[in-house]
């Protein structure tokens, strides 16, 4: 299969599980997209049914952690991208954090990550999550923005089995397959997004990493 067909399949499959997929030329564009998204999102989506709603005292206490203004958590990205992100975020009054995510269990606005592989068959992101901060960024972010280089999209997981096995074989390793946002259908089989993790997943397909 042509790479463009693989990319198209990835996109279709990811969109089928309500991921928002966009194509960008450069990392700078990806950074601009992310900051823009943060500027325009509600301050704290968790609070849509949070502070205004009836919660137990413990549940309510978590709101107290949200006195920071908007936050983008971006652990494990390269220095050049980080520099771009910090500068752009600062212009918009947004903080960028890379670690200490345990201090933000009430949630951050955006978790920003760069993925190692994509799997077209299911629209799945493959993200090395051995860093605890990466794991938390992709769970605590109300929106997860994942950058995926187009040339890293494989037709199936089996087609990159050797690469995946090498990653799994490391000591230690924590590898995440992520497909769409956190979802549940546990109440009356009605689909609800954002039960524990992100309410939205945005995937940015970048030409060059």
């Amino acid at each position: 299969m042509e790479q463009s067909a693989i990319v198209a399949r990835f996109r279709a499959k990811a969109e089928a599980v309500s991921a928002v997929v966009s194509e960008v030329e450069t990392m700078a564009e990806a950074v601009a997209y992310t900051v823009d998204l943060c500027v325009h999102k509600e301050a704290c989506q968790i609070l849509v049914s949070g502070c205004d709603e009836s919660l137990s005292p413990v549940g309510r206490d978590l709101c107290g952690l949200k006195e920071w203004g908007k936050i983008i958590a971006a652990p494990g990205i390269d220095a050049a991208t980080r520099e771009l992100l910090v500068a752009r975020a600062k212009e918009n009054g947004i903080s960028v954090i890379e670690n200490g995510l345990r201090e933000h269990l009430g949630g951050v606005d955006i978790g920003f990550t760069v993925c190692q592989y994509g799997i077209a068959e299911t629209g799945t992101l493959v993200l090395d999550s051995v860093s605890e901060e990466v794991r938390l960024a992709t769970m605590l972010g109300e929106i997860h923005v994942a950058v995926l280089p187009k040339n890293r999209i494989a037709p199936t997981a089996e087609s990159i089995a050797d690469e995946l096995r090498r990653m799994l074989g490391r000591n230690p390793n924590y590898l995440a397959f992520i497909t769409g946002a956190s979802r549940t259908a546990d109440i009356e089989r009605v689909l609800a997004l954002g039960v524990h993790g992100p309410l939205e997943l945005h995937i940015l397909l970048v030409e060059e990493a």
């Binding site: 089928a16 000591n171 390793n173 590898l175 397959f177 497909t179």
Partner: peptide, 21 residues
């Protein structure tokens, strides 16, 4: 199980991973 191509998350854990706690 549910007619999903794959679940939202598949988590592969090898070894004792970092844990700040």
């Amino acid at each position: 199980a549910t007619g999903q191509a794959i679940t939202s998350y598949v988590t592969w854990i090898t070894g004792a991973n970092p844990c700040a706690a």
